[in-house]
């Protein structure tokens, strides 16, 4: 714990290793044309960045990245990939210059901005000294929840989380309204195989009891 805060040589080397893997994976994604490989590599990218988040002590962010980025979005992208072609169209080399310049300028701006960032684990940084410190001090008396992340998310900022839940619900609703609920294909499949005896629908949600 303290080693991460101080940032020893070993931690720095592992940091560099993870970032190098991310860089290589990103390059491979940019150069590949096969969509299946790109989807799989983006899952790898999420998993490596989740490991890196955990290395810099952002455990909750890393967990979310592993669950959503590596698990859910890879599966959804695979499902979307089945609806389209298997390979991306090759584009003209001249057309790559515009995106390249945009990436270059954005990268330079981000690096310029990161010069002013406080060091990792700096106790006097605004994130640690201001409202974050106050939450750490008053959390136990206010809520009695040991994990400050949970109490901030669910109690202090319950409105935000309600909004996020509504956003997730709206996203599901929007996709279903655009693409249908998937029931039509189920009915078609059932019509094609009339001999398959319909089993009674299980009432459990886990789907693992079968």
């Amino acid at each position: 714990m303290t080693e991460v805060m101080i940032g020893g040589t070993g931690t720095a080397l592992i940091n560099i290793l993870f970032l190098a893997i991310l860089f290589v994976v990103a390059l491979a994604i940019a150069r590949l044309r096969s969509l299946f490989a790109i989807v799989m590599l983006s899952g790898v990218y999420s998993l490596v960045s989740a490991a890196w988040y955990i290395l810099v002590d952002a455990v909750d962010v890393g967990f979310t990245e592993a669950a959503v980025g590596a698990g859910m979005s890879t599966a959804v992208l695979l499902g979307a990939m089945l609806l389209t072609a298997r390979t991306a169209k090759p584009e003209k080399p001249l057309k790559r210059i515009g995106p390249f310049i945009v990436c270059l300028v954005t990268g330079v701006m981000l690096i310029y901005g990161s010069i002013d960032l406080p060091a990792l684990g700096d106790a006097t940084s605004p994130a640690n000294a201001g409202v974050g410190l106050t939450y750490l001090q008053i959390n136990w008396f206010d809520t009695g929840v040991p994990n400050v992340v949970t109490s901030v998310l669910a109690s202090y900022r319950g409105f935000d989380t309600l909004g996020e839940t509504a956003v997730v619900f709206t996203a599901g609703l929007a996709v279903a309204l655009l693409l249908g609920f998937g029931e039509r294909s189920l009915a078609e499949t059932l019509r094609k195989q009339p001999k398959a005896a319909p089993r009674p629908a299980a009432s459990n949600t886990d789907g693992g009891a079968a």
């Binding site: 249908g180 998937g182 029931e183």
Partner: peptide, 22 residues
């Protein structure tokens, strides 16, 4: 509530996408 909303919405999205191919 969040558990129900997220798992329901994510499964709905997957059904909508996967239901397009037989």
């Amino acid at each position: 509530g969040v558990l129900c909303a997220v798992s329901g919405a994510m499964t709905t999205i997957f059904y909508a996408l996967a239901g397009r191919v037989a």
